[in-house]
Nucleic acid binder design. Sequence first.
DNA 1: AGGGTGATGACATCTGGTGCCATCACCGTA
DNA 2: TACGGTGATGGCACCAGATGTCATCACCCT
Lengths: 190, 190
Amino acid sequence: MSRWEPNARGRLEQAALDLFEERGFDQTTVEDIATRAGLTKRTFFRHFADKREVLFGGDPGSALREVFVTGLAAAPPDAAPLDAVAAALDAGADFFTEERRPFARRRQRVVGAHPELQERELVKLASISSALAEGLRERGVDEPAASLAAETGLAVFRVAFERWVAPGEERDLTALTRDSLATLRAVAAV
Amino acid sequence: MSRWEPNARGRLEQAALDLFEERGFDQTTVEDIATRAGLTKRTFFRHFADKREVLFGGDPGSALREVFVTGLAAAPPDAAPLDAVAAALDAGADFFTEERRPFARRRQRVVGAHPELQERELVKLASISSALAEGLRERGVDEPAASLAAETGLAVFRVAFERWVAPGEERDLTALTRDSLATLRAVAAV
DNA sequence: AGGGTGATGACATCTGGTGCCATCACCGTA
DNA sequence: TACGGTGATGGCACCAGATGTCATCACCCT
């Protein structure tokens, strides 16, 4: 692909995460990141739409959304909405293998320390929620049930994910997701 | 209070909403807003932390969060988590009276047209969700049930709110919220 | 060897956002 | 009446994020 030093994008992501941990998000300029990656500020903005996006995979960040949507599509056509969403969550949980946990923890610490990064994270999750709702509608689920099932499912996933990256937690994301879903069902039971 | 033209903050909010509708968020500079309000860019940033915040009430935006928290606190101590959250949602729904609907619709159209504004909106809602979860924990609800009930409740409210501001919708927000909550309970029923 | 292609560098520019100090209107007090 | 305090505003400089434009360079293909 690249004819210069390979993997410019990856180098930028790596440099950014390192610098954000060292000095914090605000104390790191885009030029700092680019320089550490052996590139220039202008090139940074060719790979990422803005400074925050470097932590969210840029366009590839939509990969996770695809995983969820595919998982949803794989559920039996006659599955209840929340059961179909549960299948999507399982697929999402599989995406975050044990090898990814250390990186996820670093990333979560940085994001958690900076409100402007949490903004972006919420948008990404909302985008997944919208995609799930759309998938549910295609399965014949009416509004507002489709949106509610999707949003609820994502809330379950978010809670599970936060537990997964919490210090000392050892259970895998699949187990945590299923546990959270069970808790939700108990809470929502009339 | 003010010894100059009164209500500088309100004038800035009004000018901003007008300009965002006329030209769009990106095509409007902070200087444009300030000038239309008879002020300067520097003064704008004394009232609002950033350009987006002008649509979210600045600090007073936390007023809504207080309404929710107060509503939650007013629920019977032995109420089930989701019932307590339902009380909070009722309080939130009361906050948006019929007179506010036209303004809410204008605002929603602008926010809906600009992803960067949606980011901010998600943060505000997440802040309410956190406050509700905290309130539930104080009522003795354990994690992750507290977070799940809070996030689920807010999903219900968000869905209801979107229907409330939809063109042609005439039901009030309380009715829509209760309807959405009933739908959620049906969806979550095993 | 030469042209095409795509990623990068260099430069200019706009705008969001902040720090700093001056200014001005009003208020209370002597 | 005079005077100083207070709080909101204006003006200015400045940094950093973000974008448009053009030049450059490495590689591939013919």
